Amino acid sequence: HNLTITQGKLFFHYNPKLCLSEIHKMEEVSGTKGRQERNDIALKTNGDQASCENELLKFSYIRTSFDKILLRWEPYWPPDFRDLLGFMLFYKEAPYQNVTEFDGQDACGSNSWTVVDIDPPLRSNDPKSQNHPGWLMRGLKPWTQYAIFVKTLVTFSDERRTYGAKSDIIYVQTDATNPSVPLDPISVSNSSSQIILKWKPPSDPNGNITHYLVFWERQAEDSELFELDYCLKGLKLPSRTWSPPFESEDSQKHNQSEYEDSAGECCSCPKTDSQILKELEESSFRKTFEDYLHNVVFVPRKTSSGTGAEDPRPSRKRRSLGDVGNVTVAVPTVAAFPNTSSTSVPTSPEEHRPFEKVVNKESLVISGLRHFTGYRIELQACNQDTPEERCSVAAYVSARTMPEAKADDIVGPVTHEIFENNVVHLMWQEPKEPNGLIVLYEVSYRRYGDEELHLCVSRKHFALERGCRLRGLSPGNYSVRIRATSLAGNGSWTEPTYFYVTDYLDVPSNIA
């Protein structure tokens, strides 16, 4: 807008934040220059609390790290170098490059900038070799853009010569660093050979998330399962459950009422301010606690030095998902009996873990797994792929695949051998790939016309006998059925096997 004052003059007093240069501009645009008398524009009460600059400061050096910015700028000295009290560095987070010096300023003089007072450097006698002032900004957020400017702080001049310097606002972004852990990993099994893994992005990506790394490792069953005799009275049979499938998407929606109208769909109840505040506090606490764990609990591995020492970490090797089922080394339970199943799973520490690289999504279907087997899954978020990966501390989750139908069934015939004193040795093959492992066998036998009897055969007993022995049988026709019990439950009964026990007292003698 054009402003013209045809008559009258300007009068400025007691404006401590208004620089004289701005008042002189007002004289020019209003056409009143030359009308004012000496005392109409006070030299001592206008701009006496402001830094009124008329020179431009330029930054000469900028260096960044993930949490620091090192700045240096060209030296500046007023005509009387004693008038320079120091520099004021202003900075704040700036997602967009549209910041002005006066953003967030209120009537009390406060604003949204963080201000650092910096002492002037030592003055050199040689004007050509003056030290460049600077400042190291610490405690910054990774991968965050900051708006920065600097200006001088000078003393009051009796001659009211307006001098000083100020830089333009520059924008500097800190470097990326390792992201925080992925949030809320959930693993479920939808079949006997697959596990579905879902997660949420890290709360602090500290860069642009480029991919996720998912490692999985087959877990050995508890050692007590191999040692305890679950045929003993009072000892509860062990059981394991597989990871249940995901709930429906509708039930997972946030901010939804727990109660549904019987007449149909209901609208979600909005969260109160107290609920939102509580969630923010919980989120802040979780982030602080995660940072504490990362800094205190997890110790970084030592990389190899120039002395030739090897990095103890196993090298990563990509495998196809079809090879995942046989990740671990199978060892027989008892070496003397080769027909026992290889369900003991000690994992070799030198073995390469299978892994998958996930790009542009937060889910993965891990296939080719062994049925009813526990897996430990390790999830890392990465925001750099080359020249070397920059990934987060791992988040861990466990899951067990679903049982395989008929995996616990005894394959092959049940054979028998009759000894003296009416002892019958029953023999059968253990299931080759049971659900988890076989903890015991149930032997059901009966003599024709009598009630059915049951015998429990422990895992250890089966390994020693290759089956079991029935003792003290009365003469007669017998039928026997056997079924295995694994961590997933009972298998199917075998087809009945028949044998006849004679009275050993009636056996004919070869003595003449």
Rank of each mutant, 00 (worst) to 15 (best):
T494L: 03
Y259V: 13
D273G: 06
S479E: 13
Y259T: 13
K302F: 07
R390S: 07
Y292F: 07
C382F: 00
C269W: 08
V443T: 02
S342H: 15
N339T: 08
D204S: 15
P431L: 02
G325F: 12
L321D: 06
T401E: 07
A463Y: 06
T340P: 12
S304R: 08
D503F: 03
S304C: 06
R318P: 10
P475D: 03
L232C: 11
K287Y: 09
F337P: 13
T347Y: 12
V296T: 08
D204R: 00
F499H: 01
D409K: 10
G472Y: 07
N339D: 11
L453R: 03
A405S: 08
D409R: 14
A463K: 07
Q252H: 09
P300R: 13
E389S: 10
K317C: 07
K278D: 15
L321P: 10
G306T: 11
R483Q: 06
V424R: 04
G325I: 12
L487R: 14
L464G: 12
N208M: 07
P332D: 09
F215A: 15
S203R: 10
S284V: 14
F226S: 07
Y445N: 03
V424Q: 02
V480K: 00
V331N: 12
L470M: 08
R469Y: 10
S239A: 14
G264E: 04
Y500H: 11
L364M: 12
V299Q: 13
F285S: 08
P205E: 02
S474T: 09
E465N: 09
E265T: 13
Q429M: 15
S392D: 02
K361P: 08
A381P: 00
R313W: 14
V359I: 13
L237V: 06
Q256W: 10
V424Y: 05
P300F: 14
S262P: 13
K460L: 06
E217C: 11
E389Q: 13
K317N: 09
C231R: 03
A263I: 13
D311L: 13
S262M: 12
L473S: 01
F246M: 09
Q219F: 13
E260S: 06
D408A: 02
I438M: 03
P496M: 02
E290I: 15
T343P: 09
V439K: 15
Y498G: 07
V296L: 06
S398W: 04
D222R: 12
E389I: 06
N422A: 15
F372K: 02
K233R: 13
G368H: 03
L453T: 09
H254V: 06
G306K: 11
S257T: 06
S283T: 10
F462S: 04
E362D: 15
Y292L: 07
D311N: 10
S486I: 00
W216L: 12
Q252P: 07
H416P: 10
E260N: 15
L228F: 12
D385W: 07
E281F: 14
A336G: 09
P475R: 07
E260M: 11
